[in-house]
């Protein structure tokens, strides 16, 4: 079982990540303060609005401790807005947006379009996720425009004829442009829990 996994609970689909993690037997702690952060062996940054979460990270005093924890190797899994917060470079963001760093990718906010372009589909898994395609829900999703040399691409989708990264890993940071937590397929949450186990050994 191990130490609990945190879900950043400032805004967004916290409950769905909690459900996915609990389904695979993990204890979950909602993180709203720096004290909460100290209790967890890994943290999930959920979907939501990255601009609102940015402001709330600052006012909760979480920006600095979370940035340091990620730099120090705390396993971190960001989905959608979580991916945006982790990215090295954000296009179409706000200049005052928080950047937690830790993930050497360039993302464009709402890169797949507005809500009318939101979709359900399947992501092809690679490496540890090789096998049946992963069901995926993209909601006003950010698009990963480029990845650094040390970034593993674990999931891709055909977007306008281009094989586009949708799930990436860089050291102890995992991030997806889609929402595995809105599906009943827990393989990606399993992978993250394996990363947490490996880091706590």
């Amino acid at each position: 079982m191990g130490a609990p996994i945190g879900v950043l609970a400032l805004q967004g689909d916290v409950r769905e990540h909690r459900r996915s993690l609990e389904r695979i037997g993990r204890e979950v702690v909602e993180v709203k303060t720096p004290a909460d952060l100290q209790r967890v062996a890994g943290i999930v940054l959920p979907g939501g609005e990255s601009t609102a979460i940015s402001l709330l990270l600052n006012s909760s005093g979480l920006t600095e401790p979370l940035t340091n924890a990620i730099a120090g190797g705390l396993p971190t899994f960001g989905t959608c807005a979580g991916l945006v917060l982790l990215a090295r470079s954000i296009l179409d963001g706000r200049p005052d947006q928080v950047q937690l760093k830790g993930l050497d990718v360039v993302v464009r906010r709402n890169g797949y379009g507005r809500q009318l372009a939101s979709f359900e589909g399947h992501v092809a898994g690679h490496g540890p996720l090789d096998g049946a395609a992963l069901p995926a829900v993209f909601i006003r999703a950010p698009i990963i425009e480029s990845v650094g040399a040390d970034v593993e691409v674990l999931g891709t989708i055909d977007h306008a004829g281009i094989e586009t990264p949708t799930l990436v890993r860089h050291g102890s940071v995992l991030a997806s442009s889609f929402h595995p937590e809105l599906t009943s397929d827990d393989r990606i949450h399993h992978l993250f829990c394996d990363m947490v186990e490996a880091a706590t050994k």
Partner: peptide, 22 residues
């Protein structure tokens, strides 16, 4: 190759799920 489905109920309520706590 997999098809994309837009405007499903999951996609429609998905945006509401993302607004929670806001």
């Amino acid at each position: 190759e997999h098809t994309r489905s837009t405007a499903t109920f999951t996609v429609k309520r998905g945006l509401a799920d993302m607004l929670r706590g806001g």
